[in-house]
Design a protein around this nucleic acid. Structure first.
Length: 341
DNA sequence: AGCACA
């Protein structure tokens, strides 16, 4: 209601398939850039060079035949912030997600963000006739939002429609308080996975509030919390991770991370990997040449899911391709926790 | 294209 529908005249993808963040959002607000720079001084790659999409990025469906890229980017979703009660600190902690297909479901948006620490809620806006949609995802604070942003920006949401996500800080925070219950559908109460088509996927302004608030960021509100990405991944995906892990090491709870940008920091990796279940710690190797890192998980299931989720993800610091994940050759620091006398 | 730390 307070959102104007996306304007389909905006710039989109070039014929080469390169996504230009800057052009996708003409004349980005100054404050947004400043915020990004403040926290990540070396965000040059993100701001000035287009995120390139790795074939490993995002939830992979089966191998879809390539399609000519439709223009997916949008400008829109302007929020009338006149009546918005900004939190005491006006730090932006809401993400704006563009590039969603018109038939995107609130559940899909929810599944995209629910595992990130600090996730609070998401709101899908589908503009009836348009073939595209956009959404907002609210986080507890800006670092959480930025971590989720760096992990999801550039992800291929729908290979079939060639939908690539553009995730950015929203221009203003969404109202996260449940001050209004007008257009909240009765979905969140129950009947969850029952009816996959139960979402009001048409009709502008279906404001679905999928909350993940509360404790440790998992589950809640009816959705199974664990690694149920069954909506996105084929069965073989979870059965045979080696088919998707282009390396030879046997599965290991520790991951080896390569192809990091020269300015990648350990904190940036923590921001990204801490969203994975079973995450323990990151150890970065910056001394020699190209930085690499090791990320430890509590078990091989966790590390495998992390590979599947984050393979090829492009970070702020990334140059060119996204990071490459492999099982490490040996488990990180198994020393005292192991009960070898 | 690179696998350390204990």
């Amino acid at each position: 209601m307070q959102f104007s529908p996306p304007t389909p005249n905006s710039v989109g993808r070039t014929s080469g398939g390169i996504l230009q963040t800057a052009s996708a959002f003409p004349s980005p607000p100054r404050h947004r850039l400043l915020l990004l720079r403040r926290r990540r001084p070396r965000a040059r790659a993100l701001l000035s060079s287009p995120p390139r999409i790795s074939p490993y990025a995002s939830y992979r469906h089966h191998a879809y035949p390539p399609h000519p890229p439709p223009p997916p980017a949008y400008v829109g979703a302007y929020y009338d912030h006149a009546a918005e009660p900004l939190p005491p600190r006006d730090e932006l902690r809401t993400l704006f997600i563009a590039g969603l297909p018109g038939d995107a479901k609130a559940r899909e948006v929810y599944n995209l963000f629910r595992d990130f620490p600090g996730y609070v809620s998401s709101h899908l806006r589908t503009s009836g006739k348009s073939s595209q949609a956009y959404a907002f995802a609210v986080f507890a604070d800006q670092p959480s939002a930025l971590a989720a942003m760096s992990a999801t920006n550039g992800r291929i949401f729908d290979l079939e429609n060639n939908c690539t996500l553009h995730v950015d800080l929203a221009k203003s925070n969404s109202r996260s308080k449940r001050s209004r219950t007008d257009d909240v559908p009765s979905y969140s109460s129950e009947k969850k996975a029952r009816n996959p088509r139960g979402f009001p996927d048409s009709g502008a302004g279906s404001n679905i509030h999928m909350s993940g608030m509360g404790n440790s960021s998992h589950s809640l509100n009816g959705y199974p919390s664990a690694q149920s990405y069954t909506n996105f991944e084929p069965a073989a995906f979870s059965k045979d991770p080696s088919a998707f892990a282009p390396q030879n090491n046997p599965p290991c709870p520790t991951l080896f991370v390569a192809n990091l940008g020269p300015t990648c920091s350990e904190q940036e990796l923590i921001d990204v990997f801490s969203s994975c279940a079973g995450f323990i710690k990151v150890k970065m190797q910056n001394k020699f040449g190209a930085p690499v890192a090791f990320v430890d998980f509590k078990d091989m299931d966790s590390s495998t899911e992390a590979i599947n989720r984050l393979q090829g993800v492009i970070l702020y610091s990334s140059t060119g391709e996204g990071m490459r994940l492999e099982y490490a050759k040996s488990r990180m620091g198994l020393r005292k926790q192991d009960k070898r006398q």
